[in-house]
Every structure is written in structure tokens, then in C-alpha cells.
């Protein structure tokens, strides 16, 4: 393949990854933004979404599309319910204290991961995509007769991948609309700005926290359900989404939804491109160091406010 088609392919793959990352990172960002706590178990909610998708799809084994739709409808709410239960039973009792919450979610990370290992097993398991048409992409070449279209071998995507991008963007737009307009967004933003004042205005802060924690987990699970027909469900798959979401949320500026979206697109898109030039391990080393240094020198994120 020539460079042009190769780049298009990398961008397409990057876009799929970026859109799922955007959804996942929005969940983490929302939780941090409103509750001021870091959910270290966020990647495990992602994993739980993928694993549940496999389980739910299995109930409708005969029909892949039906199975997928059922997974899409059931898995994220189930994960959100689990998150809500954890918030009610544990985080609420910790008063959502930032440090203790981190410690508790670290504990949750291992509990979810190991319980999944014990019940679901160590194998990676697939979910069949509801539809999966190959879409060849034309490219322009200059021939003796002038410009002409042709279909380079290997330059293609699938209808399902395009669906993932559209669905992820639609869901992110939904979150955006919810935050920017509407009563729910108003309540969330008020809580984010000032917990005490919100409480004084009769906003049930702890219920808001439970809702946000569940919503964040649900978004991660939704991203996982979308991506699981492309990848597979595995009990250790939560690590990378967690790390990437961290990177996105920190680079985008802690708690800034706008920054999160931009950073997710940037990092999701570049991840595919970067791994062309660097070994994946080196890319990860640079990414983790970048996150650490951004937190040290630009705590407002690269797109956020300047440090005070």
C-alpha cells in the first residue's frame, strides 16, 4: 500500500479507538468532575461491561443481532447498578473522601477482576457483531488517462466499525446535552461547583453522587459493549482503558468535559499512529511519564487553565 491509503486506514482505526475512548474517559471525567474522586476501578467497569455483553449475548445464541442488542440494552445498566451499589455501601460511608475513595476503589478493582477470573475464567471470549459488511474505500491515482478511482487492496473498514463511531459520538453528545442543558445537568454542575452550597439549596448531594458514579460506570460499560465485537472479552482487559482514560482526563484537564473530548480524540487517533513509530511498550512509557509530568507542571491539563 502507498502512504496515502495507509494513513487513511490508520486514521479510520484511530477513530474507532478514539470514539470508544471518548465514551470511557467521559465516564471517568464526570466522576472526577462532579465528585472530586478518582475511580481506579473504572477500567474494571469497562471489563465488566464486555464480559456481561458476552454473557447476555450468549442467552440469545441463535441470533447475533438480537444478542448484541440485548447486550447493549442490559449490560451498561447492570454495570451501573453494581456501581451504584458500591457507592451506597462503601463510598457513601467514606463521605467520598478523596484519598479513602481511591483506596477503596483499588480494592474494588481487584475484587471485580478476581471474581471475574473465578467465574468467567481466564479465556478471551468473543461477541458476534450484529452486522459486519466490508466496506472498501476508493483511492485516487494518477494514470496516463488522468485521475481515476481505484480500490487499493486492504483499504477497507466494516459497517460495524462505522456504527461504533456513530454510536459513541451519539452517546457522548447525549452526555454533553445532559450536562449543558436540562435540570439534571444544572444539578450536577451545581454540585460540582460547591458541594456545601448545593446541599443548602436542597440538592440531595449523596444521591447525585450515586447517580454520577453509576453513570460513569455505565458509560465505560457502554464503550466496552460497543468495542467487544471487534476485540474480545477478557478479565484483564480493564488495564488499558483505565490507563488511557487517566491520560485523557489528566491531559484534558481534570473535570473538564470539553478537554476530555478533545484529548480523547487526540490520543485515540494518535495512539494508532504513534504505535507505527514506537514499540507499544515505549509508547506506553512515554504516555505514563507525560501524564505524570502534566500533573506536576500543568495540573489544569494541557487544554485547561494555566497553573495558578
Amino acid at each position: 500500500m502507498e502512504f496515502g491509503p495507509h494513513l487513511i486506514l490508520a486514521l479510520l482505526e484511530g477513530l474507532v479507538q478514539a470514539s470508544v475512548l471518548m465514551l470511557t474517559a467521559l465516564g471517568l471525567s464526570l466522576v472526577f468532575g462532579v465528585m472530586r474522586v478518582v475511580n481506579v476501578a473504572h477500567g474494571e467497569f469497562f471489563m465488566l461491561g464486555a464480559v456481561l455483553a458476552h454473557v447476555v449475548a450468549g442467552w440469545f445464541g441463535a441470533h447475533p443481532a438480537l444478542g448484541f442488542i440485548a447486550a447493549l440494552l442490559l449490560a451498561p445498566p447492570l454495570v451501573a447498578l453494581a456501581a451504584l451499589a458500591f457507592d451506597r455501601t462503601v463510598l457513601h460511608r467514606l463521605g467520598h473522601d478523596p484519598e479513602r475513595t481511591i483506596v477503596a476503589t483499588i480494592g474494588l478493582l481487584y475484587v471485580i477482576q478476581q471474581l471475574t477470573l473465578m467465574t468467567f475464567g481466564p479465556e478471551a471470549r468473543p461477541v458476534t457483531a450484529p452486522f459486519n459488511h466490508r466496506i472498501a474505500i476508493p483511492w485516487i491515482e494518477t494514470t496516463a488517462a488522468g485521475l481515476s478511482f481505484y480500490f487499493p487492496w486492504g483499504l477497507s473498514t466494516t459497517s460495524y466499525k462505522l456504527f461504533v463511531v456513530v454510536a459513541a459520538f451519539a452517546a457522548s453528545a447525549g452526555v454533553w446535552l445532559m450536562m449543558a442543558r436540562g435540570r439534571v445537568g444544572l444539578v450536577l454542575r451545581a454540585t460540582q461547583l460547591d458541594r456545601e452550597t448545593a446541599q443548602a439549596f436542597a440538592i440531595p448531594v449523596h444521591q447525585v453522587y450515586g447517580f454520577v458514579f453509576a453513570l460513569g460506570a455505565g458509560l465505560a460499560a457502554l464503550g466496552a459493549v460497543l468495542v467487544v465485537p471487534i476485540r474480545q472479552a477478557h478479565y484483564l482487559m480493564g488495564g488499558d482503558p483505565l490507563l488511557l482514560s487517566f491520560i485523557v482526563v489528566i491531559i484534558g484537564g481534570l473535570g473538564s468535559l470539553r478537554g476530555t473530548v478533545w484529548a480523547a480524540l487526540l490520543i485515540g487517533m494518535s495512539d494508532g499512529i504513534v504505535s507505527v513509530f514506537f514499540s507499544p511498550t515505549l509508547a506506553k512509557i512515554l504516555a505514563t511519564l507525560l501524564v505524570a509530568l502534566v500533573l506536576v507542571y500543568r495540573p489544569g491539563g494541557l487544554f485547561g487553565a494555566k497553573p495558578a
Binding site: 462503601v90 467514606l94 483506596v103 477503596a104 483499588i106 480494592g107 481487584y110 475484587v111 477482576q113
Partner: peptide, 8 residues
């Protein structure tokens, strides 16, 4: 993991 949660 369970111990961490219980301790906090």
C-alpha cells in the same frame, strides 16, 4: 482487594 475495602 476485599481487605482494602473492609479496612477503609
Amino acid at each position: 482487594g476485599a481487605a482494602l475495602i473492609a479496612l477503609t
